[in-house]
Amino acid sequence: MSKKIPLTLACGDYEIIRPLKDGTVKPDGIDLTVLTAMDSTTRHWRFLRNRDFDMAETSASSYVVARDSGYEINALPVFLHRRFRHGFVFINTSKGITKPSDLIGKKVGIKSFLVTAGHWMRGILEHEYGVPHKSIEWFAELDEDVDFTPPADLKINRLPHDKSVEQMLAEGEIDALIHSSLIKPIVNKDPRVARLFLDYKAEEKAYFAKTSIFPIMHVLGIKNEVLEAHPWVAINMFHAFNEAKAITMKRMENPRIVPLAWYREAWEEQEELLGSDPWEYGLSERNRHTMETLAGYSYEQGLVKRPWPVDELFVELGQGRKRGVEFRI
């Protein structure tokens, strides 16, 4: 009987990994345990700090800082979570904030400074709207996934355990908040809180049209010791992730599986705006540009000691020209 190596994968409970989780897709040579019952911030901490998993979906911005700090990890160019971020900038409605430049000199909450959602939005605000990240006083609720020394002129306040950035925004203790998720005051329609970008989808579409960036939130981290002991795991897992996504996307084309009236129209709009595979893995020209931008923000914001080329951030997956495409006996 052939022997497979046991590996753990921690990731979100996404449709695009469902065939891996239910065993429809079996990575060649690997006995995979998939763990999905934890939130993102817990998973990132447990992988980066505790080293609990062999592989894990982890914060892209925290990963860049971890590599710069010498953590014994690498990553596969598998991007399980992407999201445009203009719709996750929230304001207190009593503060007179009507446009991005009004954030200059304001108090802005974040979950933590390395959260990728905030990292992207800081860069976007600076480059697209003229709001320097150092012109803002930041209030972080959580400890960082990875310790770093902020530049001396970067204003970051770490909140005590009993403080919540969502509550502080609603009560006016801070002026604005950049979050990774929909916050409770928005869900509950609290009149004290609103979005900065009222037509955020239009802003996001314009941003993509200009930059071709569909922001990558997470990369697929893998321990160096796994790669050293079994270097073939990287390519085999990459193939498995691609196979799982292909199966899922084929299934998701069918509007009958989703209880939404205009689901198929939304699917077709996405394809028209973002292309046939906006969730593509690998270092395509577009993915390379996106990761170069994110890593560039890390250096620009003083989070890493040197610029990180994209090729240094990901495992080499080359199999030779025209190999690995068509299987023949």
Rank of each mutant, 00 (worst) to 15 (best):
Y14F: 13
N50A: 15
S298P: 08
G118M: 03
P309M: 02
L103E: 12
D54M: 10
W308A: 14
E204H: 07
A56E: 11
A56Y: 00
P191S: 06
E285C: 01
F84R: 06
L35N: 05
M38T: 02
N287C: 12
G109P: 05
Y263L: 06
E72L: 05
I186S: 08
A152S: 15
V325E: 14
G118L: 01
D39F: 04
R18D: 10
D31R: 03
S181M: 06
E204W: 06
I186W: 11
H161L: 11
A56C: 14
Y297M: 15
R51K: 13
D22V: 03
R158Q: 08
I17T: 00
I186M: 00
H86K: 05
G70E: 12
H133L: 10
E144P: 00
K155D: 08
K95I: 01
R49P: 02
R85T: 12
P6T: 07
I329H: 11
H127P: 03
E171H: 10
E141G: 00
G296Y: 07
A66K: 10
W232P: 10
S298F: 07
W267R: 14
H218A: 02
H86T: 12
A10E: 00
V34M: 03
E300N: 13
P77K: 08
G96I: 09
H218T: 15
S284C: 09
G282S: 02
R288Q: 15
R323C: 09
G23C: 02
E173F: 09
L20T: 07
G282R: 10
S40L: 01
H161T: 13
